[in-house]
Amino acid sequence: MELVLSAGIGVLTASGVWLLFRPRTYQVIIGLSLLSYAVNLFIFGMGRLRVNAPPVLEPGGAGGLLTHTDPIPQALVLTAIVIGFAMTALFLVVLLASRGFTGTDHVDGRE
């Protein structure tokens, strides 16, 4: 489990970083999205991987880390997903505006 997921995180990071260095804005936006998957999974993984552990409590009861999943990384990642969407949207619009102004989709605004 752990090995597979960390390999996945590694590949997502590598693809993201590679795209970050590319000259086209669209490549950078895809790269950032890939990186944000990697980071989200990484944070999620900090709570350790649990298969079939209950994520919600029994009504009236209290839980512990032995029986339940770790809620903190999940809460962090949940908002990170939404903020990641906002970031993608903002970057996409900046990309479009820059393309409209400069006539090119190069990251520097000129070829």
């Binding site: 752990e2 090995l3 997921l5 960390s6 390999a7 995180i9 590694g10 590949v11 997502l12 990071t13 590598a14 693809s15 970083v17 990697a38 999974l41 990484f42 993984g45």
Partner: peptide, 10 residues
């Protein structure tokens, strides 16, 4: 970078 992330997370 990818390899490093993999090692750390693993």
């Amino acid at each position: 970078a990818g390899f490093g992330m993999m090692l750390i997370s693993y």
